[in-house]
Amino acid sequence: MTARIGVVTFPGSLDDRDTQRAIRVAGAEPVALWHKDKDLKQVDAVVLCGGFSYGDYLRAGAIARFSPVMDTVIEQAKAGLPVLGICNGFQILTEAHLLPGGMLGNDHLHFICRDQKLRVENADTSWTSDYTAGQEIHIPLKNMDGRYVADRRTLDELEAEGRVAFRYLDVNPNGSLNDIAGITNAAGNVVGLMPHPEHAVESLIGTGRTDGLPFFTSILKKLVNA
């Protein structure tokens, strides 16, 4: 028996196929979900993938957040369903207020695409348990609106509760406050980050590293052992 992990496709999603592939490489079963369907097909977890959902009109993730599928994702995430938001998916999670803070344009105003060094700060979430806290990894980063912002009180709370899951190392690529690359909710089932673990799961492609694979093996182990 394996776990079934849903990947939502919105109009403008780009990385749904890569995300499905990463889930398969990890040994789980990917399930395609459609933005117009409220039905999550009884999946055990959901990934909101990268891209430019609804053209990123209004704000990145702002329109996707009100799509039919998100009604169910929001409701079930609050009840404990594991949800991972990558890039545009992270933006959708902040717009849906499943994660605190917000995402704005990179401070240098350019699109960025680079191999990014990160430190795993929290290895206790549903999506990071196959890492060790303090581990340094390289995974691709590619975005326009990657600047994480939150008010001081929220930042202090995230830091005090260990909810900064990933931090940029060597260079802050977009002006994110506290070098934040990814965060988790208090329960650890909802995680969002800007860099793309699904593009770093096979040694033959991309950077040649497989530093992103533990996202998908973490959730698989959690679900299968549950």
Binding site: L104, G105, N106, D107, H108, L109, R147, V149, D151, G175
Partner: peptide, 12 residues
């Protein structure tokens, strides 16, 4: 944007 948030477009 809230006043405390950096606005790089406005700065440009």
């Amino acid at each position: 944007l809230k006043p405390e948030i950096l606005d790089p477009q406005g700065q440009a």
